[in-house]
Amino acid sequence: MTAREVNKTKLSKGILEMKFMKRTKEKVEKQLFQEEGKEYFGAQLTNHMKKGSDKFIIEPSFVFCEGLLDGRVSFRGMNPEIERLMELEEEAKQALTRKQNETEITDEQMAKHYRSSAVDTMAKKFRTKHENKKYVRDDSIEIEPLEKKPKFLKPSD
């Protein structure tokens, strides 16, 4: 039985060369190629490759592990070029920390900001030319939104 099965899978070269066996031939060749590959590289697959996980990252340098500096420094005007670069780096670092520490703007600040700009601008839109002339901006007094024009009130009978 088994012998027959083996014979069945292994078709002779002569038959495979025939025109109507083209697709089977491709299949058989592919299988053969894979088996060869396994024979070649099976020995090189170590335990570690089979059991490998991506949990570990190998970092061969101390620079990253210890967070080391870059080692070129100058002090008290010995090399102005380097000192300028150091200053720029320091500024960049501080800007980064400042950005992190920045608190959210309070409602009060927001209101003040709007009062100084947006309210004024909008108010200007609704002022008449006559009012515009005599208008002087004064931050000390509380700006109130302009009153609406009194509407015509229908007299009640």
Binding site: S61, F62, V63, L68, G71, R72, V73, S74, F75, R76, G77, M78, N79, I82
Partner: peptide, 8 residues
């Protein structure tokens, strides 16, 4: 005052 280059 000094300048220095420290190599790893």
């Amino acid at each position: 005052a000094y300048e220095i280059a420290i190599g790893m």
